[in-house]
Design a protein around this nucleic acid. Sequence first.
RNA 1: CGGGGUGUAGCGCAGCCUGGUUAGCGCGCGUGCCUUGGGAGCACGAGGCCGCCGGUUCAAAUCCGGCCACCCCGACCA
Length: 572
Amino acid sequence: MRLSKLLVPTLKEDPSDAEVVSHKLMLRAGMIRKLTAGVYSYLALGYRSLRKIEQIVREEMDASGAQEVFLPTVQPAELWMESGRWDLYGKELLRFKDRHGRDCCLGPTHEEVITDLVRRDVRSYRELPLNLYQIQTKFRDEIRPRFGLMRGREFMMKDGYSFHAHEADAEETYRAMWEAYSKIFTRCGLRFRAVEADSGPIGGSFSHEFMVLADTGEDTIVSCDTCDYAANMEKAEIRAPDPTSISAWDGPPRRAKTPGMSTIEQVSRFLKVEPWDLIKTLILRTEKGPVAVLIRGDHELNEIKVRNFLKVDELELADQHIIEEITGGPLGFSGPIGLEKVTLLADHAIRALPRAVVGGNENDTHILDVVPDRDFRVHHYLDLRLAGDGDRCPRCDGKLALSKGIEVGHIFKLGVKYSEAMNARFLDAEGAERPMIMGCYGIGVSRMIAAAIEQSHDKEGIIFPPAVAPFTTIVTPVGAKDPGIDRTAEDVYQELWNQGIDTLLDDRDERPGVKFKDADLIGIPFRITVGKKALAQGKVELRSRKTGETTLAPVRDVPHAVRELIRTWGQG
RNA sequence: CGGGGUGUAGCGCAGCCUGGUUAGCGCGCGUGCCUUGGGAGCACGAGGCCGCCGGUUCAAAUCCGGCCACCCCGACCA
């Protein structure tokens, strides 16, 4: 295509309302424009990238045995009431009424619709398994959309759902999706990692997130420096410390006045001890009643772990009334000694404390020289905290390290949550009626563009991997008054298209500097510069956006040379 | 939803505190000359309901009130 005919409104300056690089660069490169908060229009370049990613997703999904369908965006409330999510989903679900006053919503996801579709037409185990997917616009009315395509309200997503007669079959598809996702992200030229994720209260299932590695990512990845264990923050397990060799303190506990000192920082400074000598006593409220959780002073609670152990949905810090009722003391001075009324959970690290400081369950009082299991009794020692740099790997002797990523894919074994709620049943070989076992598999297609840019850019602009670039090459004639240059540029351009390489021709009447800057900004992987000097030898220049390396090639060799560059792109 | 901030030409901004010429600057845009290997130069020019509504005043981009939009931080972390 000819750049002179495309709408590519590049910007020299950063738009004031963009914060992250991918957002700034996509705006500057003329790929997208904002319509309203979290909602973007795709211009030619942005849409080409989007479609390239879609196509890769489509090819790999089809190859994995899934079939593409297209489901409605507007969905009736009844379906959501049936699954129970009409009340649960919250304000992210954009609701409205049609002209007849019927409640409707814009689909933020499609479990209900797909389950409804399948339950109507599938009766027998002979028709299973099924794996259906679509690539479609989703709308989630996020509290605070931000970062451009990274966290929009309207976005493009590939969502897939599978239906099975047996667990084993569901797991096989799960693995197939894992493979397909790995191929997709690899083909897109992304550096990524699949990490274990928490599967929530649905139970017994498992889940993986696919994270694009980027320092600017919003999500934290916990990974082992030795083995291939990797998990997200919620899920990351920590190996318990070895039984301590330090003999416990044999003196009695002492009470100390700590006026107004209720935070870990205040108490440790005041008593001249380290934060890891303290025990935080957290009183939590759940729908099954209050519990107390002990965490070392320098550690942080992982609420998901508590939730999963207790099998509760609601979990929050108790208010001061509950705290006083449970502990007899005010908020900020809770401790495990004498806590008889509640279950007491403790992180593994507590057991290894030889001589700790705890709250006194009395205003302005802490207790020193406390020995766990001697001075108070813990009901369960568990892994209850968030992983940190240097914690021990649960699978090997390695150490855990934290890094940042952008979630671009999530695969999930759903089980029978929706099939049960919505009565999606089949008859098995014995003639018994059973709910279908489901899996669901998502890819944030539009987010992948942003992730690719976050991962790959420089001061000049975007550095697109060839597979997701709006165009693979750009032919840039410089020296406008020379008809030989224009003709050669035209020839190269035609030849590249003839050979199936999508190419942009910068036929604008602009100075070379402008063309170069724009080509770099929009991140076309390879630039073919047609200029006087090289052309005198019958050659053109071939430049890699990524490495900046330039080589000379005879005109007829260009398509071959480009293919070679694409092939070796990832190794540069 | 709580807190903070910003709305002035297509984009980025100044002006506002201390009301008073024709509301400026850079980029971009148009025309012409010139230039042509990393966002050139000169000249001329077009382009503004100063977010919206109301109030104060002889007079409002500027002061006051309300509304709207957008951005940032936070939103069960002792």
